[in-house]
Amino acid sequence: MYDMKALYEAESVSDAIRLRLEHPEAQIIAGGSDVLVQMREGKRAGKELISIYGINALRGVSIDGDEALRIGSLTSFSHITRDPLIQRYINVLGEAVDQVGSPQIRNIGTIGGNTCNGVTSADSASTLHAYEAIVELTGKNGVRRLPIKDFYIKAGVVDIRAEEGEIQTAILIPKASYENTFGHYIKYGMRNAMEIASLGCSVNVRLSPDKKTIERCRIAYGVAGPVPMRAPSAEAIANGSALTEEMVTEFALSVLSDINPRDSWRASKAFRQHIAVEMARRALIASIEKAGGVIA
């Protein structure tokens, strides 16, 4: 038995908003792979929960009117990885979430939970930052959309207005962001399965039509700071550059001026800085190769 005070089950988004307004103390539970574990550990013992797990309208991937990729917040990791639209337009996201925990965790864990928990090590977070994802929140005043970098406020805290009954309803990837891009995610952990990232790095590139230069490069990290972050100096070096070894090296080294990792029991700051450079290098090379480019 879980030590919970009460459970309210929402059947629709409007139901969830109403329940949130009626029970301001209650916490949202989606797949529960964070919430139920914390409850078991006593951290949320005695709390009320609002379950949104039954809202099937929040599951699945589609293309919306603006040709943005729309990922319902309750879509599980395994369904994201298997989705044909994801595979076609942003395969790196499917590959990244395929590195979460274990098969069972990937069946229960949702992308909404993975972002709403505000955790820097979340395996979807760096890729979503590197694709300038838009977070869609729905509350009593309607829909609010904000860039993912503004959604993260600080470690463990995201911009969801509980007092307005808000829940996250979707994550959108604009066409301008995903179109003609190829990306690669690297998770560094002590073991292959059941391991939280010591550092995560997601890169994506769009090459020029002749595949000789990088038109646009984006790179983002998890665990390189209190929240997931981009590395703008590195991007500036790659953008518009020819595909050379020197560029790749310069790109990789420059991430050190952007990131700010810390010492933790998982890894020291110095080690994280060391692997951050190597991961940037490898992820850029892999992205260029996936895009059909050849490094001279």
């Binding site: 879980y2 529960g32 379950s51 098969p103 069972q104 965790i105 069946n107 229960i108």
Partner: peptide, 13 residues
């Protein structure tokens, strides 16, 4: 048809 750890799955679901 999918594998789930039933310990972190609410019975009501």
């Amino acid at each position: 048809g999918e594998a789930f750890n039933s310990c972190i799955y609410l019975a009501v679901w």
